[in-house]
Protein backbone atom coordinates (compact mmCIF):
# COMPACT_ATOMS: atom_id res chain seq x y z
CA UNK A 1 0.00 0.00 0.00
CA UNK A 2 1.28 3.39 -0.97
CA UNK A 3 2.13 5.49 2.05
CA UNK A 4 1.89 8.63 -0.04
CA UNK A 5 -1.84 8.72 0.44
CA UNK A 6 -2.87 8.14 4.01
CA UNK A 7 -6.30 7.38 5.34
CA UNK A 8 -5.95 9.92 8.11
CA UNK A 9 -5.27 12.63 5.55
CA UNK A 10 -8.30 11.57 3.51
CA UNK A 11 -10.36 11.72 6.69
CA UNK A 12 -9.07 15.18 7.57
CA UNK A 13 -9.93 16.43 4.11
CA UNK A 14 -13.45 15.11 4.56
CA UNK A 15 -13.96 16.76 7.93
CA UNK A 16 -12.22 19.97 6.91
CA UNK A 17 -13.97 20.18 3.56
CA UNK A 18 -17.39 19.41 4.99
CA UNK A 19 -17.01 21.99 7.74
CA UNK A 20 -15.62 24.59 5.34
CA UNK A 21 -18.42 24.26 2.82
CA UNK A 22 -21.05 24.12 5.51
CA UNK A 23 -19.78 27.46 6.82
CA UNK A 24 -19.79 28.91 3.33
CA UNK A 25 -23.33 27.66 2.80
CA UNK A 26 -24.44 29.25 6.06
CA UNK A 27 -22.80 32.52 5.05
CA UNK A 28 -24.65 32.50 1.72
CA UNK A 29 -27.86 31.57 3.51
CA UNK A 30 -27.40 34.53 5.81
CA UNK A 31 -26.98 36.85 2.85
CA UNK A 32 -30.01 35.31 1.14
CA UNK A 33 -32.23 35.80 4.17
CA UNK A 34 -31.17 39.45 4.23
CA UNK A 35 -31.80 39.88 0.53
CA UNK A 36 -35.21 38.20 0.47
CA UNK A 37 -37.38 41.15 1.58
CA UNK A 38 -36.70 42.80 -1.78
CA UNK A 39 -37.61 39.69 -3.77
CA UNK A 40 -40.20 37.58 -2.02
CA UNK A 41 -43.23 39.87 -2.19
CA UNK A 42 -43.60 39.94 1.57
CA UNK A 43 -45.31 43.29 1.26
CA UNK A 44 -48.38 41.35 0.11
CA UNK A 45 -48.22 39.18 3.22
CA UNK A 46 -48.23 42.27 5.41
CA UNK A 47 -51.01 43.98 3.45
CA UNK A 48 -54.75 43.71 4.29
CA UNK A 49 -55.07 40.61 2.06
CA UNK A 50 -52.23 38.93 4.02
CA UNK A 51 -54.58 36.71 6.08
CA UNK A 52 -56.33 35.65 2.90
CA UNK A 53 -53.02 34.67 1.31
CA UNK A 54 -52.13 32.67 4.40
CA UNK A 55 -55.48 30.91 4.22
CA UNK A 56 -54.94 30.27 0.52
CA UNK A 57 -51.55 28.71 1.14
CA UNK A 58 -53.06 26.54 3.82
CA UNK A 59 -55.78 25.37 1.44
CA UNK A 60 -53.15 24.77 -1.21
CA UNK A 61 -51.37 22.48 1.24
CA UNK A 62 -54.25 20.54 2.80
CA UNK A 63 -55.64 19.73 -0.63
CA UNK A 64 -52.24 18.58 -1.88
CA UNK A 65 -52.33 20.74 -4.99
CA UNK A 66 -48.59 20.13 -5.38
CA UNK A 67 -49.44 16.48 -6.08
CA UNK A 68 -50.44 17.41 -9.65
CA UNK A 69 -49.31 20.99 -10.26
CA UNK A 70 -45.99 22.76 -10.08
CA UNK A 71 -45.60 26.02 -8.20
CA UNK A 72 -42.55 28.00 -9.33
CA UNK A 73 -41.55 24.86 -11.17
CA UNK A 74 -41.60 22.55 -8.17
CA UNK A 75 -44.13 19.81 -7.68
CA UNK A 76 -45.70 17.25 -9.99
CA UNK A 77 -45.73 17.56 -13.76
CA UNK A 78 -49.24 16.26 -14.35
CA UNK A 79 -51.04 19.59 -14.47
CA UNK A 80 -50.13 23.18 -15.39
CA UNK A 81 -47.69 25.44 -13.56
CA UNK A 82 -49.62 27.71 -11.19
CA UNK A 83 -46.89 30.10 -10.05
CA UNK A 84 -47.79 32.39 -12.94
CA UNK A 85 -51.41 31.38 -13.46
CA UNK A 86 -52.59 34.81 -12.33
CA UNK A 87 -50.63 36.42 -15.15
CA UNK A 88 -51.75 33.74 -17.61
CA UNK A 89 -55.34 34.75 -16.92
CA UNK A 90 -54.67 38.36 -17.69
CA UNK A 91 -53.78 39.38 -14.12
CA UNK A 92 -57.46 39.11 -13.31
CA UNK A 93 -58.52 37.61 -9.99
CA UNK A 94 -62.06 36.96 -11.17
CA UNK A 95 -60.78 34.97 -14.15
CA UNK A 96 -58.67 32.78 -11.83
CA UNK A 97 -61.59 32.24 -9.47
CA UNK A 98 -63.90 31.40 -12.35
CA UNK A 99 -61.42 28.89 -13.71
CA UNK A 100 -61.08 27.10 -10.37
CA UNK A 101 -64.83 27.03 -9.92
CA UNK A 102 -65.35 25.66 -13.39
CA UNK A 103 -62.81 22.87 -13.01
CA UNK A 104 -64.07 21.58 -9.68
CA UNK A 105 -67.71 21.51 -10.74
CA UNK A 106 -67.30 19.36 -13.85
CA UNK A 107 -69.43 16.18 -13.76
CA UNK A 108 -67.78 13.18 -12.12
CA UNK A 109 -68.26 10.84 -15.06
CA UNK A 110 -67.75 10.91 -18.77
CA UNK A 111 -64.82 13.24 -19.26
CA UNK A 112 -61.94 11.08 -20.52
CA UNK A 113 -59.09 13.46 -19.76
CA UNK A 114 -56.90 14.53 -16.85
CA UNK A 115 -59.28 15.64 -14.16
CA UNK A 116 -59.07 18.03 -11.26
CA UNK A 117 -60.63 16.49 -8.14
CA UNK A 118 -64.07 17.87 -7.39
CA UNK A 119 -63.03 19.89 -4.32
CA UNK A 120 -65.87 21.41 -2.33
CA UNK A 121 -64.57 24.93 -1.92
CA UNK A 122 -66.68 27.82 -0.68
CA UNK A 123 -66.48 31.15 -2.48
CA UNK A 124 -64.30 32.55 0.29
CA UNK A 125 -61.94 29.64 -0.07
CA UNK A 126 -61.68 30.12 -3.82
CA UNK A 127 -61.01 33.80 -3.25
CA UNK A 128 -58.25 32.92 -0.76
CA UNK A 129 -56.66 30.49 -3.23
CA UNK A 130 -56.75 33.14 -5.94
CA UNK A 131 -55.09 35.68 -3.62
CA UNK A 132 -52.41 33.12 -2.80
CA UNK A 133 -51.74 32.48 -6.49
CA UNK A 134 -51.61 36.21 -7.16
CA UNK A 135 -49.09 36.61 -4.36
CA UNK A 136 -46.99 33.76 -5.79
CA UNK A 137 -47.04 35.31 -9.26
CA UNK A 138 -45.57 38.53 -7.88
CA UNK A 139 -42.49 36.93 -6.37
CA UNK A 140 -39.33 37.94 -8.21
CA UNK A 141 -38.33 34.68 -9.90
CA UNK A 142 -35.50 36.08 -12.05
CA UNK A 143 -37.67 35.99 -15.15
CA UNK A 144 -38.83 32.38 -14.90
CA UNK A 145 -40.92 30.92 -16.54
CA UNK A 146 -39.84 31.78 -20.08
CA UNK A 147 -43.42 32.59 -21.12
CA UNK A 148 -46.94 32.74 -19.72
CA UNK A 149 -47.64 29.08 -20.50
CA UNK A 150 -45.35 28.18 -17.61
Amino acid sequence: MSEAFTKSMARNIFYGGAFFFLLLFLALTFDTINALPKLDNRAALESPVGPQIAKGKHLWEVNNCIGCHTLLGEGAYFAPELGNVYKRYGSNLDAVKGRIKGLISLPAEGIPMRRMPRFKFTDEEIAALAEFLKYASEINTSGWPPNDQG
Partner: peptide
Protein backbone atom coordinates in the same frame (compact mmCIF):
# COMPACT_ATOMS: atom_id res chain seq x y z
CA UNK B 1 -13.35 9.37 2.68
CA UNK B 2 -12.22 10.98 -0.55
CA UNK B 3 -15.52 10.24 -2.28
CA UNK B 4 -17.69 11.62 0.49
CA UNK B 5 -15.39 14.62 0.83
CA UNK B 6 -16.05 15.39 -2.83
CA UNK B 7 -19.75 14.76 -2.31
CA UNK B 8 -19.92 17.42 0.38
CA UNK B 9 -17.58 19.85 -1.34
CA UNK B 10 -19.76 19.85 -4.44
CA UNK B 11 -23.14 18.99 -2.95
CA UNK B 12 -23.56 21.46 -0.10
CA UNK B 13 -23.22 24.61 -2.19
CA UNK B 14 -24.74 22.58 -5.03
CA UNK B 15 -28.05 23.09 -3.21
CA UNK B 16 -27.95 26.40 -5.03
CA UNK B 17 -29.14 24.75 -8.25
CA UNK B 18 -32.59 24.73 -6.66
CA UNK B 19 -32.43 28.43 -5.86
CA UNK B 20 -32.49 29.73 -9.42
CA UNK B 21 -36.17 30.58 -9.86
CA UNK B 22 -37.91 30.52 -6.50
CA UNK B 23 -37.49 34.12 -5.44
CA UNK B 24 -33.94 33.77 -4.14
CA UNK B 25 -31.13 36.17 -5.15
CA UNK B 26 -29.67 35.80 -8.63
Amino acid sequence: YIIIAMAFISGIIGTGHHFFWIGTPE
